[in-house]
Design a protein around this nucleic acid. Structure first.
Lengths: 189, 189
DNA sequence: GTACGATTTCAACAGCTGTTGAAATAGGAG
DNA sequence: CTCCTATTTCAACAGCTGTTGAAATCGTAC
C-alpha cells in the first residue's frame, strides 16, 4: 500500500520522543543530553536534530502530552460542592498515575524548577489548574487559597514521584486521597 | 598585630562562599559555574578550587548554614499541643524568611530536586524535620501524615521562593500562616 | 635587604555539550 | 534499470565545563 511520504514515518521519530520524555523525567533538563537520548533510541544524534530542531524544541515536543485536567476541573467544583476536594484529589492522581502523563509532568515540573522562571510553570500550573479552581471559589483570598491547594498537591507530587520518599511513595493513591481531600475541601469554602 | 597564617584569611574566601550560595540558590546546581562564581566574587576560577576542592565540595560548604530547626521542633509539639500547627508554620517561615538561610535552603532544595536522589533530601527533610514531628504524633499513619505536612510546606516554599507565583510570593507570612496552620493542626491529631 | 609561606593568577588540558553540513543509504515510482 | 525523495549517518566545528600545575605576587619574619 504505497503512500506519499515515508512509509515508516513515526518509527524512529516516536522512539526518540519516548526516550526523550523518559530522560527528561528521570534526569531533568540539564542532565539530559541529545547524545544520551539518541543512544537510548538507537539512532544517531544528528537524527534528533533533523526531526526536532533545538534541544528546547525537543523538550517541548516530548513533554506535551494531552492532559484532560483543564476541561475536567470546572465540572468537579460546580457539580457536587461538598465533595469537590475529593474530586480534585482523585483527578490529580488519575493523571499522575498514568505512566506517560506522569513522565511528561515530571519533565515539565523539573524543567520549571530548574530554570525557576515563571513562564514555564505559570502556564503549566497557574493557567491550567489554578485559574479554573479560583474561578469557582468564593470568599476572601480566593487566589491565595487556590494556590495553597496547588502547593499541597505539588508537594505531594514532588515527595512521591521525584524524591520518592517512603512511605508516601509506595502507598496506594486512595490512602493519600482520603487524607488530603478533607484539607483541600476546607480551602475551597 | 602579627598572627600565624594569613592575616586576611576569610576575606576572598568568604566572598566566594557568598557568591556560590547566591548562585546555587538563584540558578540551581547545574547552571552554576565555577567561572561564574569566581567572576561574581572578583577572583580567579583557580582560587575557588584552591580553597574548596571540587564543585560538589564547594556546594556543600556554601549551603551548609546552621539551621535551628531540628532542635526547636520537639518543643513546639509537646508544649502546647493545640497550637502546634501554628507553631510549626511560624517556625517554618522564621527560617525561610531569613535571607542567608533562605539562600542555603534554596540551594539544597534545587540540588535535591535536580538530582532527584534521596540521600540529599532525605537527610535534609526527612531526617531533620519529619522524624522529629512523627515522633510526637499519635494515631494511625503517623509517618504518612507527617510527610503530608512536609509536602504542604514544601509546596508553599516552592511556589513562594522558587517559582515566585503571585500572590503567594508577595503576601505577608502571617497571612499564609493563618491559612496553613489549621490544616497542619488537623494532620497532627 | 633576603627568604619563606600563603594568596592569587596564568595558561592550558581533556572532556562533554549542542549543533551543523555534507555524504551515504534505503526503498518505492517511472 | 534510473531517478527521486526521505531517512540516517559521519565527521567535525566551536563553545563551555571542571580541573590542574606551574608561575607570579604579596606581606611578613628574620
Amino acid at each position: 500500500m504505497p503512500r506519499r511520504g515515508p512509509r515508516s514515518e513515526g518509527d524512529a521519530r516516536q522512539e526518540i520522543l519516548d526516550s526523550a520524555r523518559a530522560s527528561f523525567a528521570e534526569n531533568g533538563y540539564d542532565r539530559t543530553t541529545i547524545r544520551g537520548v539518541a543512544t537510548a533510541a538507537g539512532v544517531d544524534p544528528a537524527l534528533v536534530h533533523h526531526y526536532f530542531g533545538t534541544k528546547e524544541e525537543l523538550f517541548t515536543s516530548s513533554v506535551s502530552v494531552p492532559i484532560s485536567l483543564a476541561t475536567a476541573l470546572p465540572n468537579l467544583i460546580s457539580d457536587d460542592a461538598d465533595r469537590a476536594g475529593e474530586a480534585i484529589a482523585r483527578l490529580f492522581f488519575s493523571v499522575w498515575e498514568e505512566p506517560k502523563a506522569r513522565a511528561a509532568l515530571l519533565g515539565q515540573l523539573r524543567h520549571a524548577l530548574a530554570t525557576g522562571k515563571q513562564p514555564a510553570i505559570a502556564g503549566f500550573i497557574a493557567g491550567a489548574v489554578l485559574g479554573r479552581v479560583a474561578e469557582r471559589m468564593t470568599g476572601e483570598d480566593r487566589e491565595l487559597r487556590a494556590e495553597l491547594i496547588a502547593s499541597h498537591l505539588l508537594g505531594v507530587a514532588i515527595l512521591r514521584y521525584v524524591v520518592r520518599l517512603e512511605p508516601i511513595a509506595s502507598v496506594e493513591p486512595e490512602q493519600i486521597i482520603a487524607l488530603v481531600a478533607p484539607r483541600i475541601q476546607t480551602y475551597l469554602s
